[in-house]
Amino acid sequence: MEIRASTVLPAVRQDIELHTADGLTLVGELALPPEGKPVATLVCLHPLPTAEGMMDSHVLRKAANRLPALAGVAVLRFNTRGTESARGRSEGAFEEGEGERFDVAAALEYTEFHDLPNPWLLGWSFGTELALKWGHDPLVQGAILLSPPLRRATDEDLDAWAAFGRPLVALVPEHDDFLRPQEARERFSRVPQAEVVAVDNAKHLWVGEPYVRIVLNEIVERVNPAAHPLPTDV
Rank of each mutant, 00 (worst) to 15 (best):
residue 189 S to D: 15
residue 229 P to A: 07
residue 195 E to H: 08
residue 203 K to Y: 07
residue 194 A to P: 07
residue 215 V to P: 01
residue 207 V to I: 13
residue 189 S to N: 11
residue 227 A to R: 11
residue 227 A to D: 10
residue 205 L to M: 10
residue 214 I to V: 15
residue 220 V to Y: 08
residue 223 V to F: 01
residue 201 N to Q: 15
residue 202 A to T: 01
residue 192 P to Q: 11
residue 194 A to N: 10
residue 215 V to D: 00
residue 222 R to F: 01
residue 203 K to L: 02
residue 210 P to D: 04
residue 223 V to T: 04
residue 220 V to F: 04
residue 228 H to W: 15
residue 191 V to C: 10
residue 200 D to R: 15
residue 201 N to E: 12
residue 219 I to L: 06
residue 195 E to L: 09
residue 214 I to M: 04
residue 209 E to V: 02
residue 193 Q to Y: 01
residue 209 E to W: 14
residue 199 V to Q: 09
residue 191 V to I: 08
residue 220 V to L: 03
residue 212 V to W: 09
residue 219 I to G: 03
residue 188 F to E: 10
residue 190 R to I: 12
residue 219 I to C: 06
residue 198 A to R: 13
residue 190 R to P: 13
residue 224 N to E: 05
residue 191 V to T: 03
residue 198 A to N: 09
residue 207 V to Y: 13
residue 206 W to K: 02
residue 203 K to E: 15
residue 194 A to G: 14
residue 192 P to C: 12
residue 229 P to V: 06
residue 189 S to P: 09
residue 188 F to Q: 08
residue 222 R to N: 00
residue 220 V to E: 14
residue 187 R to I: 05
residue 193 Q to P: 03
residue 192 P to Y: 11
residue 208 G to Q: 06
residue 200 D to Y: 07
residue 187 R to H: 11
residue 199 V to N: 03
residue 227 A to Y: 11
residue 198 A to I: 08
residue 213 R to F: 08
residue 210 P to N: 05
residue 195 E to M: 01
residue 205 L to T: 03
residue 196 V to A: 08
residue 215 V to T: 02
residue 217 N to R: 02
residue 223 V to G: 00
residue 222 R to K: 15
residue 222 R to L: 02
residue 222 R to Y: 01
residue 203 K to F: 00
residue 219 I to F: 03
residue 205 L to G: 06
residue 195 E to R: 09
residue 202 A to E: 14
residue 219 I to A: 05
residue 227 A to Q: 05
residue 212 V to R: 02
residue 194 A to T: 09
residue 190 R to V: 11
residue 228 H to P: 03
residue 209 E to P: 14
residue 195 E to W: 04
residue 218 E to M: 02
residue 224 N to A: 07
residue 213 R to I: 05
residue 197 V to Q: 11
residue 188 F to M: 15
residue 204 H to S: 10
residue 222 R to M: 04
residue 198 A to C: 14
residue 227 A to L: 08
residue 199 V to R: 05
residue 212 V to P: 00
residue 204 H to E: 09
residue 223 V to Q: 03
residue 195 E to G: 02
residue 223 V to Y: 02
residue 191 V to P: 01
residue 229 P to E: 05
residue 212 V to I: 11
residue 212 V to C: 03
residue 215 V to R: 04
residue 227 A to H: 07
residue 188 F to G: 10
residue 194 A to M: 13
residue 199 V to E: 05
residue 197 V to W: 12
residue 204 H to K: 05
residue 207 V to C: 07
residue 187 R to E: 07
residue 212 V to H: 06
residue 218 E to L: 00
residue 222 R to E: 05
